[in-house]
Every structure is written in structure tokens, then in C-alpha cells.
């Protein structure tokens, strides 16, 4: 296996291991997502048919906001005990560090979404059993997009005066097109209509931004 991927896997493994030991980050994210879903219910009349059309939006808002909460910790934990310096000193390629971190964040968010979907089904009375296989690809692409730019900006926002609080301000404007694609394709799947255009958009988004971040990450890590 090429060295780059060995390094990526090592970083990924390290992140998942530290996360799994406490599960602090994941439980905070899950609770926050749960809160968002509950709070969104108060906007509409209970049982109103409009819930069906806004459910994809609620799902993605919950993912994005709770995901950002987790993403902001992604590099903040490395700041303790100067772990980031240690990472930088390893012979690992900056791109590999980025990719490992990004995949770790993606996995965390996918687990989070696996928790949000049942909550949506229960509280919004959403029927997704048949649509589920078609939902996997758009959700995966949207999550990859969020994790890619979120991971890059997570490393950047740490060095601002606002620390992690700055992350959403950077991530959300850039994420809008992918978010739009994710919400619209979710809705289209529920309605049974075509989603190819949206999939093309989100895969191009993911491909371009992963490539750009692999190239640019070394400038973010540099001291």
C-alpha cells in the first residue's frame, strides 16, 4: 500500500480510537441534533402536512449544526498538549493528515445521521423505508462535502480570536451549494423524482474540494 494511504489510515485510526474511548464528542453531537429536531417541531402545527416537505431540511440542518459542533473539536483536541505540533513533526504528508481527519469526521457524522433518521421517523412520522437505499448516496456525498470544508476550516478557525466559534461563519457560506443539493435530492427521493443533476453537482463539489484541500492543507498547518 502506498505510504500516503498508510499515513491516512494511521491518522484515521488514531482519531477513531480517541473518540471511541470517551464518545464525548459523539454524544454531545447526537444530543444537539436531537434538540434541533425537537425544536423544529414547534415551528409547525403538530401533524401538519408541511412537515413532509421540510423534513429533509430539518435532517440536514440538524446534521450540519451538530456536525459543526463536532468538527470544531476535531482540531481543538489536537491543540491540547501541543498534539498538533507533534502531528506536524511526524513525517506524514499534510494531505494524509487532512484526509485521515476528514474521513474520521465523515464517519462520525454518518453515525450521527444514523441516529437522526430514526428520530425523524418517530417524531415527524416520516415514511422512508422504501426510499432508504436511494438516500444513501446523496447523504454520503453531502456529508463528505461538509466534512471536507469543515475539516479544513476547523484547523483555520482555531487560530482566530474567536476560536471554534468562528468555524460556522467560514463553513456555512461555502457549504450552501452542497447543502442545497443534499436537501433537494433528499426531497426528490421522497417524492420519487429524478436526482441525477443534484448527484452530479454534489460529486463534483466533493471531488474538487477534496483535491483543493489536499493541496492547500499544508499552508494551513505550516507555522
Amino acid at each position: 500500500m502506498p505510504l500516503f494511504f498508510t499515513q491516512t489510515l494511521a491518522i484515521l485510526q488514531k482519531d477513531l480510537k480517541t473518540e471511541w474511548r470517551t464518545r464525548e464528542r459523539l454524544s454531545a453531537m447526537a444530543f444537539f441534533a436531537f434538540l434541533i429536531v425537537i425544536i423544529f417541531n414547534f415551528i409547525y402545527e403538530p401533524g401538519s402536512p408541511i412537515i413532509k416537505t421540510v423534513a429533509p431540511g430539518i435532517f440536514w440542518i440538524a446534521t450540519a449544526f451538530a456536525g459543526l459542533l463536532g468538527l470544531s473539536r476535531s482540531f481543538a483536541i489536537e491543540k491540547q498538549n501541543d498534539c498538533l505540533m507533534g502531528l506536524r513533526l511526524t513525517p506524514a504528508d499534510p494531505g494524509a493528515i487532512f484526509l485521515g481527519k476528514m474521513l474520521g469526521n465523515t464517519l462520525t457524522m454518518l453515525i450521527l445521521q444514523a441516529l437522526i433518521l430514526p428520530i425523524l421517523v418517530i417524531f415527524l412520522n416520516l415514511q422512508i423505508a422504501q426510499a432508504l437505499p436511494h438516500l444513501i448516496l446523496p447523504i454520503l456525498l453531502g456529508t463528505l462535502g461538509l466534512a471536507t470544508i469543515g475539516t479544513l476550516f476547523s484547523a483555520m478557525s482555531l487560530n482566530t480570536r474567536l476560536r471554534e466559534a468562528f468555524l460556522p461563519l467560514l463553513t456555512l457560506p461555502i457549504f450552501i451549494p452542497a447543502l442545497l443539493a443534499a436537501i433537494e435530492s433528499f426531497r426528490a427521493v421522497l417524492e420519487g423524482s429524478e436526482i441525477t443533476d443534484w448527484l452530479v453537482l454534489s460529486s463534483a463539489f466533493v471531488a474538487l474540494y477534496i483535491a483543493a484541500c489536499l493541496l492547500l492543507f499544508e499552508y494551513v498547518l505550516e507555522d
Partner: peptide
């Protein structure tokens, strides 16, 4: 460092334009 971060955001931000264009059109 801030100059470097700005440059990264400048590049990432502008790369977004075609996506926004395509997304808003589809939308």
C-alpha cells in the same frame, strides 16, 4: 499566518462560484 489563511479562503471561496451558479439554477 493570517495572510496564508486568507489566501486559502480566497481560493476555496472562488472555487465555489460555479457550484453556486449551477445549484441556484437547478434550484
Amino acid at each position: 499566518q493570517s495572510a496564508r489563511f486568507r489566501a486559502v479562503l480566497g481560493i476555496i471561496g472562488f472555487l465555489n462560484v460555479p457550484f453556486i451558479h449551477y445549484a441556484t439554477k437547478l434550484w
